[in-house]
Design a protein around this nucleic acid. Structure first.
Lengths: 135, 135
DNA sequence: TGAATTGTATTATATGTCATAGTACAATTC
DNA sequence: GAATTGTACTATGACATATAATACAATTCA
């Protein structure tokens, strides 16, 4: 599964945040399901070409958000929650609402926002496939 | 005008970014109009309780974005562009589109996004009056 | 004209985050 | 018992942020 993950080591976005987003993404796409094991900290770090501490930081934050859980000596797994995907989607919705609120406070009209949403869902998007900032 | 600006010196959001947002906000609200003078770097810094270099950095970036312009010996002014407010509003729309695209890629439905937009414009917002991240 | 104010540039220092490197330990697996 | 697992800790370097201090050219203004 780690072969599905590509990190941009030159980005100013922290590696651990990129990793968090990628893992969440795989859960949303169904590539990772509740109970599935994640790679061990050390081997994952080796495969990704980063430091084990960086992977551990990503795991720790994801665990704090109840997206994964770890057991010493066993490994790290996707949380056993049937509402996991919904929870992650709701995070995205909250980000949208934050951006909309800022736009509203800048006197952007509701109609302008709706048409922007239409544009995105019409597929005419530059910058497809970007990962989001976390928290 | 600088009395209208309150900075959070303890925030992890850089001061110069907060200042950029606040100035843009005042332009959008009509408190600052094209041609209006901004406070001098030194006096502004004194009033805000920050270092002059921090104010200068905010001014420099705003000038790079054609929102303000500076003249040595004279001062710093709001750009003389009749489309300034529209330009700033369009920045907000772009932020919304980015967030919507991420949500879409997380298989959030268009209907869910639309209802989120409705919620924001209905006024039932927690976290009102926040300033946005820039660039 | 000369002093004050303006934006601008530069160097130095301190702090916090990010990332790497290395080591160590307890729990589990095999 | 050896290997693997998560976890914790210290140390180091790179980088962004912010402050401090100084200097200079252009403009303003008394």
């Amino acid at each position: 599964m780690d072969t599905l993950i590509k990190l941009d080591l030159l980005s100013r976005r922290p590696i651990y945040e990129q990793l968090k987003s990628k893992i969440s993404e795989l859960v949303l796409l169904g590539e990772l399901k509740p109970g599935d094991a994640l790679p061990a900290v050390r081997s994952f770090a080796r495969d990704l070409g980063v430091n084990p501490n960086t992977v551990q930081k990503a795991y720790q934050e994801l665990e704090r958000e109840n997206i994964i859980y770890s057991v010493v000596g066993r490994g790290t797994y996707i949380s056993r929650s049937d509402k996991l995907a919904d929870q992650l989607r709701e995070q995205q919705v909250q980000r949208v609402k934050s951006a909309v609120l800022l736009a509203k406070n800048s006197s952007v009209t509701k109609e302008r926002i709706i048409s922007a949403v239409d544009e995105v869902f019409s597929g005419k998007n530059h910058a497809e496939g970007e990962s989001q900032a976390d928290d």
